[in-house]
Amino acid sequence: MNGITLILGLVTLAGALASVALRNLVHCALGLMVAFAGLAGLYLSLGAQFVGLVQVLVYIGAVGIVFIFAILLTRGGGSESGSLFSTSWAVGGGIALAVTGVMAAALLQSPSLDRGSVRAAGPTVRQVGESLMADYVIPLEVMALLLTAAAIGAIIVAMPEKGDPGAPPQPPPG
């Protein structure tokens, strides 16, 4: 473990902790963003450029903004009162420990630990693109269709119905 990995890991951990421990929901979301950025840095430092950059583009650029807008539109970004710890913290801790244990066991048995040093970087962007466009083109198209359907559905749900008194006034022509 070199210095960069250590720093990035600590940043990720700090962001993750902040996202669960802070009171202000917007601060939590920003902490989550820090965790995302740290993860992206870890990916990049491991040579997985595509995953790392998509992590930034999608998670910080899109998912994070959606989180923030959801917080703003629902709760107004105010702080929560009451205890930070849930009453069922023991159960949650138990589950978390169990998950960690299973993952640790799986990792320890994984053959990837056997390799001596860091291998060459993983799949390049070209390989990712070629497999997406050649081997997995039908799943890709199905997903695209699904997303298009979802987008159209969202527009129809949000569209004001004709004669709806609560509909916002139409913008002036121009």
Partner: peptide, 18 residues
Amino acid sequence: DLDTGLLFFFAVGAVTEL
């Protein structure tokens, strides 16, 4: 000279919104 230079550019630009 990044293989994914264009992606890097747009990824970094997405942080501006934040």
